[in-house]
Nucleic acid binder design. Structure first.
Lengths: 353, 353
DNA sequence: TCATTTTTCGTGTACGTTAACGAAAAAATT
DNA sequence: AATTTTTTCGTTAACGTACACGAAAAATGA
């Protein structure tokens, strides 16, 4: 009995049922002004009843509306290529939604330079954007920018690390605490009985520390909670060049003999290089992120485990969240934690960011 | 200098440049008959030069063409809920592409019943489908069906397990050998020195074995290649009910003391149940798949590791491959291996299929 | 040469939505 | 009551492609 054109309820059908013109229906659909409360209610009711879904193709074809998103993440440096992956994800998302009239413009800053962050942030603030994705590395500077965005009612997405307590659209990234906790769990498997562990923080900017500290906290708490009597030592290395790191490590390893070294970020390759060049063996090495350098040392057995949290997907989902929010006005999950992936020699070739 | 309407090269512009009507342009675009070689060449040249990309929105709006995909996977049983996840992925994909005029119809079969497979397969063969996604569990029966599809020129996608040497569109699933190899690697970490390992195959249908055997092969080869002197024992359990499995395990464990038990599929929960109920401790247990039962025993520390290979994504990508191939006529990667994920107590809550 | 068939092509409408323009109705002002 | 202002609404032309219909042109047959 169904007619061929069933399933196609459009503005025309709604207009017919409501005894108005399609123009009026269009007005309430896009809630523009110029329609009386009474007819608006009537039309809304019919839309509800028909469970009307606008035809996105007709919409896109007829509309000339454009949206602009800005992204603000660290630039790729010789020091670390980590941010290549989120950028990839951002570009992938941008490519997928560009046909829908959305333009994504990427801004960058230097992780070692707060001023560069402020410069880019102010460019965005004055650039008429409809949505922003950012990696809030510097707490203070980010805060100022966040407040600007809130004031202009621009939705904001955080990736990679969170600044809790802000009115942002969502956070997409690791649960840092849990990530450190898992590392401890692995250490425990590696050598269940005796173990002396060295925690290594390598980071120039103090600000980045809140990030690393959360991981360290998780790491420590694992052993506390599980009542293991193991010895934890920690060193902070605030210069990121190799000679300096080498020196610090040498000093430390002279003092004591360690079973495990846990590097709290992606700079684990630098430590691996030191181990490799100096034929230091028998120490298990754990660190972060699927980077070329890291994989190199994973393959040659200097690094034992890498933990990775889908950096590319973070970028992708970040942009998509803005799209879902602004275009489809879908509901966005406030905290989207990434899976915690363990990468070894055997599975790295199947890993996808 | 760019005009506002730059970037919008359409059939109209092509027609103007070629001194023909848009109807003719349309004919060569959709390579329909009724246009002379000369004008066709002329138009093709212009299309090439302009790098014309048809507007998918206008195309979709104007076209009333529909495509139908069929999927054929095992039904979810009380024995195992594994196939819930691929089905989820299939549904997600179906939902995403339904607006593009694609209908996905799901067919199922009983893993313990070859006839049910044949029944569903013949339904599909006579059902006028434009693409098929299947899990080729039964080798012989699948082969017959595959040949039918090839004959009808229906593109075919395999998920979860492969039957090599067929002219299918692509395979999406684990690299089985590598997956077993990785398990062995983990075992090696668990107890690097002494280890007696029991491999457990639980499967009713002999046919499914080629699947499990590949994993076992990888597992064994790891130890061979790495020259470890460990002892491997294997048992096949061909009844999948608990009492029977329990009996088999009890018999085996009476014979010997094992350090590690490796279950080659998702039925590891059954083994875990036996361990749990009989207070068997000190044996490391490794198995497959992120299932509720398995996670239960992972949490209570009976199972130590689970290996998972994105079953949901397999379903999703499988359907999407058909879409990409038939609608966007994109190039499809012939073998798409899933990442090998290691699931532990600490990261399972962040795992996403 | 004329009629007939076949090939090649142009015209026009439809798809469902957007948005500009202006008409009609209602409200406010004189 | 007449005029002006404001609010509410209808009409219509796009958007780029698909496709049916039929006209013109070319090829074939007599």
């Amino acid at each position: 009995m169904e007619k061929k054109n069933s399933g196609t309820v459009g503005v025309k059908e709604i207009a017919r049922l409501a005894n108005v013109s399609i123009g009026t229906v269009d007005r309430v659909l896009n809630n523009r002004v110029g329609v009386s409360e009474k007819t608006k209610a009537k039309i809304l009711k019919i839309i509800e009843e028909l469970n009307y879904q606008p035809n996105i193709f007709a919409r896109r074809l007829a509309s000339k509306k454009k949206l602009r998103f800005a992204t603000l993440i660290p630039q790729v440096s010789e020091e670390t290529t980590y941010w290549e992956a989120p950028l990839q994800g951002i570009k992938q998302a941008a490519n997928e939604i560009k046909d829908f009239g959305i333009e994504v413009i990427t801004f960058f800053f230097d992780q070692n330079n707060k001023e560069s962050f402020k410069t880019s942030a102010s460019k965005i603030a004055s650039g008429e954007f409809d949505g922003v994705l950012m990696a809030p590395m510097f707490e203070e500077e980010s805060t100022a920018f966040i407040e600007q965005c809130n004031h202009q009612k621009i939705p904001l997405v955080f990736i990679n690390s969170d600044i809790p307590g802000f009115n942002n659209l969502c956070y997409i990234g690791p649960n840092l605490y849990q990530s450190g906790y898992l590392s401890a769990h692995i250490v425990n498997y590696l050598s269940p009985s005796t173990k002396k562990t060295l925690i290594v923080n390598i980071s120039k900017e103090i600000d980045l520390h809140h990030h690393l500290l959360r991981k360290e906290e998780g790491f420590r708490n694992y052993f506390e909670q599980n009542g293991h009597s193991n010895e934890l030592t920690k060193i902070d290395i605030q210069q990121t060049d190799y000679p300096h790191i080498k020196q610090k490590l040498a000093d430390q390893l002279k003092k004591d003999r360690y079973d495990v070294v846990f590097v709290t970020n992606s700079r684990v390759a630098t430590v691996a290089r030191y181990f490799d060049e100096n034929k230091i063996e028998g120490i298990k090495l754990i660190g972060y992120d699927f980077l070329e350098d890291n994989i190199h040392y994973l393959k040659n057995k200097t690094i034992d485990f890498l933990i990775c949290q889908k950096p590319q997907e973070q970028g992708y989902k970040g942009v998509m969240s803005l799209y879902d929010h602004l275009v489809l006005n879908a509901n966005i999950e406030k905290e989207q934690f990434m899976p915690i992936d363990i990468i070894t020699r055997e599975n790295f070739q199947y890993y996808s960011n």
